[in-house]
């Protein structure tokens, strides 16, 4: 490790110059989106790390941190992990994805259905 003069943790988080659009009415919700997405990325990274540990243990029976850092999935392993990440994103994004489906379906309010089936 080199001696570090820069406070890289603080500096890395610098904002980009230019006013940020406010997408949502409530700024607190806007902040929550940022927080939840960052956590989602961390969970994804943890899942990958776990997968790396398991694959290396399968292969070698025992591993070191250096093994984990050096691990680069290839071929089938890369595809399996890619697919697992895709499935993970699909799980955390279900609410959004089903909202899109709902826009396409245009279901009537449930009360309409309740009334309809209680008549027929």
């Amino acid at each position: 490790m080199s001696e570090q003069s820069l406070d890289w943790v603080a500096l890395a988080g610098r904002r980009a110059k230019g006013r940020r659009p406010q997408f949502l009415d409530d700024p607190a919700v806007e902040r929550l989106y940022s927080l939840v997405l960052a956590l989602a990325a961390e969970v994804s990274a943890l899942r990958e790390r776990q997968d790396t540990v398991e694959r290396l243990l399968d292969d070698k029976g025992t591993i070191s941190r250096a093994d984990i850092e050096a691990y680069a999935p290839a071929g089938v392993a890369a595809e399996e992990r890619g697919l697992a990440t895709r499935a993970y994103v699909a799980r955390i994004m279900r609410g959004f994805q089903q909202e899109v489906e709902a826009m396409a379906a245009q279901d009537p309010p449930i009360m309409h259905v309740v009334e309809k089936v209680s008549r027929a």
Binding site: A40, S44, E48, T85, A90
Partner: peptide, 18 residues
């Protein structure tokens, strides 16, 4: 990129495609 830094980029890559 460390293991986890690479994994964060993987997440973003999938997320953008999603």
């Amino acid at each position: 990129a460390s293991h986890d830094e690479a994994a964060r980029f993987n997440f973003l890559t999938h997320f953008n495609r999603y």
